[in-house]
Design a protein around this nucleic acid. Structure first.
Lengths: 336, 336
DNA sequence: CTGAAAGCGCTAACAT
DNA sequence: ATGTTAGCGCTTTCAG
């Protein structure tokens, strides 16, 4: 019924071990033998049994994608990363497993240990914000589970990253170029790399343009739509309202636009708004949102690729830098 | 290093097979012995090795969630279902695997076979629209892979379903109750159960209210934002414009609202708009969207549960009916 | 470069 | 109700 390695060996007139060598791209097989074995595999439509491989070889061929299901970014962001990770795993015949993992809670280590013991991933891909959770990284190293990160704050991980600070700076420069000076910023959740980098880019651009920082124009948000609304109300209540708002992500920018409607402010005539991420939502708004495109799917793929390079003994993996690009749309205009 | 079943057996003074029986909740173990073995497992923090279990037992303890990654519904819908499926799998120590599977393409069966041979799922959860793809269902049955579906059209599957037709009827009745008579409907993709049921509910409500059907008011869409915009433009160009639009999902309803803005129509004063699904987007619009809440996460959980009941020999699984609820918000108002 | 033997950790089948 | 034996399909070790 099921074709086994042994039958491939018989068909190719070699020992089972040799077929195994070919299957795993190991050395010490002559090119000719390798070809013959490959042909036999093809011919018989041989599919190695993953459990047998795992058991004997002491590896699972499973990559787990870990995410914080409590205070995580938008679900579409994670869905895109997941798509990319899956694509990379498929390319090397690894399986992907998705695992939520709440950071808060004192049984964190226990839950992490259970995850590792129960599923034996050969490696894990970390997504923000758990990319920088020290107890997690420590435990993964202790248990010898390799990992790669999407947008880590530290330079010591392998994975992928975009220069978010430069991107934030560029988008604020876009606003400055339109004549805006009173530019507000809605912050993301504290400690998230995304929040830090985007604030840093904002400050950098403002400072470079010689605009003194007004603390009243930098307000707290939490990456959600609702927090954007709240933050915007705070800004609109100021004696000197901003003429432009740079929100740390698209969801909050959407909230700002809603609040603008409440206050009778027209976007972009009375207020320019921009976000960050370029979620599908950005194009659906009216006017469409000026934002920074973050290629999440690509980033997921690349992070997984770095991990797989490591797992497959193809080098040590690196921290790849992604380019960014501004999406200038209808929500920003020259100051009136 | 790793605790094995044998050590548990030694600690509990029983044979390995007895431990295995306890592990798998099999019969023929005295309650006393069972307790002693459970205590030993706990004590040693024993974790069965999944691959060993799979190999010996000829089952993988893996459930695959299949989705069409080509013309699928919104990613947030799938993400929520995935969450629910994962929750159910975790509860019974099964692993979940997510697998995209395009319907179109003549190598469909080959890809499905590869998926099964490569990953050996014990069962699969199907999500719309592949819940009703006959070649898929046929092949799964041939290969003896049990499945459960989220919102299948046929009554023969196990899984979960909402009475979408009744829900659609209810929301159209809400519009009728506000005095609307010229109510348009934007269709979803043909053949999708969601499109059929929502149209049927629309017709049912209109007929019951004695409003003759105007074919010009039923226009094609494709579940996307853009298709909603296009459909709405068509409707607004009519000599007799509708006073209300029921779009078959929230994304298209959003498109309708955008198009309304283009035409200078105010929602809800000049036009009432409602959708279906209650995606996060619905609450973020301004005005917020009147829609039908579909508890996707719950539905994913329940579908997976039915499958697991089957896999674990706990009955045969059934097709569970979910209740629906209308979310009346600012986008609908009395006709002026 | 290739092969033979042993065994990964568990469960099926058959005892008792 | 419990134990014994054999083996799932592959890889490891070690020998040539």
């Amino acid at each position: 019924m099921r074709v086994r390695l042994e039958e491939v060996a018989r068909a190719a007139s070699v020992s089972p071990k040799t077929v195994s060598r070919v299957l795993n791209d190991e050395a010490n097989v002559s090119e000719e033998t390798r070809k013959r074995v490959r042909a036999a595999m093809e011919e018989l439509d041989y599919r190695p049994h993953p459990s047998a491989r795992s058991l004997a070889g002491n590896r699972s061929f499973v990559v787990a994608m870990l995410y914080d299901n409590n205070d995580n970014p938008a679900s579409t962001y994670l869905a895109e990363i997941q798509d990319g990770v899956l694509e990379a795993c498929d390319a090397h015949r690894y399986s992907m497993m998705v695992r939520p993992l709440r950071m808060r809670g004192d049984d964190f280590i226990r839950r992490l240990d259970a995850l590792i013991s129960d599923h034996h991933p050969d490696g894990v891909v970390l997504t923000p914000p758990i990319t920088d959770y020290a107890p997690l990284l420590k435990r993964l190293r202790e248990r010898n589970v390799p990992y790669a990160s999407v947008s880590p704050q530290s330079d010591t991980s392998i994975g992928v990253r975009m220069d978010e600070q430069a991107a934030a700076r560029a988008i604020v420069e876009h606003l400055l170029g339109l004549g805006h000076r009173r530019i507000a910023h809605v912050l993301g959740i504290a400690d998230h790399g995304a929040s830090r980098w985007r604030l840093a880019g904002y400050r950098e651009a403002m400072a470079a343009a010689g605009v003194p920082e007004d603390p009243a124009l930098v307000v707290q948000g939490a990456f959600t739509f609702g927090s954007g609304v709240t933050a915007a109300r705070e800004l609109f209540a100021l004696k000197q309202r901003p003429t432009a708002v740079f929100a740390a992500n698209d969801d909050m920018a959407t909230g700002v636009m809603w609040a603008a409607g409440e206050y009778g402010l027209k976007v972009p005539q009375d207020l320019s708004v921009c976000g960050f991420d370029d979620t599908p939502l950005a194009r659906q708004l009216w006017p469409a949102l000026t934002t920074v495109q973050q290629p999440s799917r690509e980033m997921g793929r690349i992070a997984a690729q770095q991990l797989l390079n490591l797992l497959r003994g193809r080098g040590t993996g690196e921290l790849v830098q992604m380019p960014f690009s501004l999406q200038i749309r209808g929500s920003t205009a020259r100051v009136s």
